[in-house]
């Protein structure tokens, strides 16, 4: 990460819990503008929650989330909506509107917010669909698309309003190698061509290390490591090594906590 790049999102000492369960204790991170920042961590660690906190859909218990210097959680509703027009989110399920075809899905936000005439909207939509390779699928319904195509259509919708930042929620989960390759290429190209700030939340180590400029690793309710992909590959932290190497046993144990094995086997039924 170059020091000259401006920080777009700054999270400071954020804590968040759902009911009794603590998700984050003290998380601070900064997301530089125009770069691909990845947030990795095991399943169930609350990575999607982090994106929702950045997008203002959830409110932290303490700490702040600044987007371009503005505290996301101190905004009124209209200010928050103004901020959200500058960011976009690619949901894990794609979240395409099931009652509209692909074209209308991509055109939806433009029709709502841009005030452009339909003729120009049509051109913009076709350009966005061309960028993800789905111009030919414009008239199909979301249910007629494969999982990978749905995610690409959702990506076209996410870039329709030309946001400054895209939040990717597990973009590679459940994709076959070809769609995975397509998505990796698209995320990298969009980021470079449009100078987009990308935040990729994922646990697909190889893909993420391949495209990210900077990586944060979440575990145990906090950030356990951060750095460029090269730095992380060389890191000595055993927990990090286990995660990146995909080793079945280590600091994160293979066995769910249980009483002594031998004792349980030899014990009698009550």
């Amino acid at each position: 990460m170059t020091l000259t790049s401006k920080t777009l999102v700054e999270i400071q000492n954020m804590a968040f819990s759902r009911g009794e369960r603590v998700i984050y204790e003290d998380v601070s991170l900064s997301i530089p503008q125009g770069k691909v920042t990845a947030i990795m961590g095991p399943s169930g660690i609350g990575k999607t929650t982090l994106l929702k906190l950045i997008g203002g859909q959830l409110t932290p218990d303490s700490g702040t989330v600044l987007f371009d210097g503005i505290d996301v959680h101190k905004c009124g509703r209209s200010e928050l909506f103004a901020l959200r027009k500058r960011m976009s989110m690619l949901f894990q399920s794609g979240a395409l509107f099931t009652d509209m075809n692909v074209f209308d899905n991509v055109a939806f936000a433009l029709r709502e917010h841009s005030g452009l005439p339909e003729e120009i909207i049509r051109k913009i939509v076709l350009m966005k669909l061309e960028a993800v390779g789905l111009r030919g699928a414009a008239q199909l319904m979301p249910t007629e698309l494969s999982g990978g195509m749905q995610r690409r259509a959702a990506l076209a919708r996410a870039i329709a309003l030309e946001p400054e930042m895209i939040l990717y929620d597990e973009p590679f989960a459940g994709q076959d190698p070809i769609s995975m390759g397509v998505l990796v290429k698209l995320i990298r190209e969009l980021s470079d061509a449009l100078n987009l700030t990308s935040v990729v939340v994922s646990h697909d180590v190889a893909e993420v290390l391949g495209i990210a400029d900077y990586v944060y690793v979440l575990a145990d309710k906090r950030i356990i490591a951060h750095g460029t992909p090269e730095e992380l590959r060389l890191a000595a932290n055993p927990q990090l090594k286990q995660f990146i190497g995909g080793e079945p046993d280590g600091p994160v144990p293979f066995h769910y906590p249980a009483q002594d094995y031998k004792k349980e086997l030899l014990s009698e039924l009550d």
């Binding site: 929702k52 997008g55 859909q57 909506f81 103004a82 959200r84 027009k85 960011m87 976009s88 989110m89 949901f91 894990q92 399920s93 979240a95 395409l96 509107f97 099931t98 939806f108 936000a109 709502e112 917010h113 309003l161």
Partner: peptide
């Protein structure tokens, strides 16, 4: 179904 497929969330993120 809209909620569980995150369509409602995605509307919110589109500032709608």
């Amino acid at each position: 179904l809209m909620k569980s497929t995150e369509q409602l969330s995605s509307l919110e993120m589109m500032a709608i």
